[in-house]
Write a protein that binds this DNA or RNA. Structure first.
Length: 229
DNA sequence: AAAGCACAGTCTATTACGTCA
DNA sequence: GGTGACGTAATAGACTGTGCT
């Protein structure tokens, strides 16, 4: 109904961002899109590079197509594409540990027949892109959260106006027979009750529960390893 | 101070997909 | 309807610069 469980594994299973995050949010649907990088053209790079490792690319790229036309500027590096197996192993390793110590890096590189630097870069990118996805999710969540709060606020304002129009007695207390007319909603996430009487009662601001922060943001205040997991 | 690492930002090769003749 | 050329967006490998330890 109001809140749906979103599983990253399902949504992003097509690409390789297997974030194992579960977030409950109102009516969320996502279309992940990275900001496309600007095409600022003419940036000629130094071509010292990873792809030139001798005898390592056997199953990553077709070496025989390396031929360059001799008169077309500096040789462009051919982009390495990891095999499915390499990707799988890297993902598996990433799930176990998002950062590698030098020994692990070396071992993984040997296993994958890659340079340690390639493994390192892969992990860097993987961390960065996980974080990006996470941030996008949180952004979407907050947008929806804001919408929900705005709507809730509007409802409460209306109720307040209605109640004021009923001209309560000199001591503003809410009589029992009126209580039934007030809306009382239970937040399905924090299970706190929000009632319009809060607004009426003097000093009732203490229980204005509708503005509670989403749990994952509360958790985020004290950074922990779980944040981007 | 230098080395090593992680991260943010960026570039760019490759791939996927849509459109149109 | 099938097909090839083309444009565009998305993805992912790699790099640079910076800050921290």
């Amino acid at each position: 109904m109001f809140y749906i469980i979103l599983k990253f594994m399902e949504i992003f299973s097509n690409n390789c961002t297997n974030l194992e995050l579960t977030i409950a949010m109102p009516g969320f649907s996502s279309s992940p899109s990275l900001p496309s990088s600007g095409e600022s053209g003419g940036n000629v790079r130094k071509e010292l590079d990873i792809n030139q490792l001798p005898g390592q690319e056997e199953d990553c790229m077709e070496e025989e197509e390396e031929e360059e036309s001799p008169n077309v500027g500096p040789a462009r590096r051919k982009k390495l594409r990891l095999t499915k197996e390499q990707s799988r192993l890297l993902e598996e390793s990433f799930r176990q540990n998002q950062t590698l110590n030098p020994k692990e890096k070396e071992a993984l590189a040997v296993e994958l027949k890659l340079k340690p630097r390639q493994v390192e870069v892969w992990f860097q990118n993987r961390r960065a892109r996980s974080k990006l996805k996470q941030t996008e999710m949180e952004c979407e969540y907050l947008k929806r959260w804001f919408g929900t709060l705005t709507e809730q606020n509007r409802k409460l304002q209306r109720e307040l106006e209605n109640l004021r129009a009923m001209k309560p007695g000199p001591n503003n207390a809410c009589p029992a027979h009126m209580a039934s007319t007030l809306s009382s909603t239970m937040c399905p996430r924090c299970e706190r009750v929000t009632t319009a009487t809060h607004v009426l009662d003097k000093g009732a601001t203490t229980t204005a529960t509708t503005a509670a922060m989403p749990p994952f943001f509360q958790a985020r205040r004290q950074p922990s390893a779980a944040c981007y997991n």
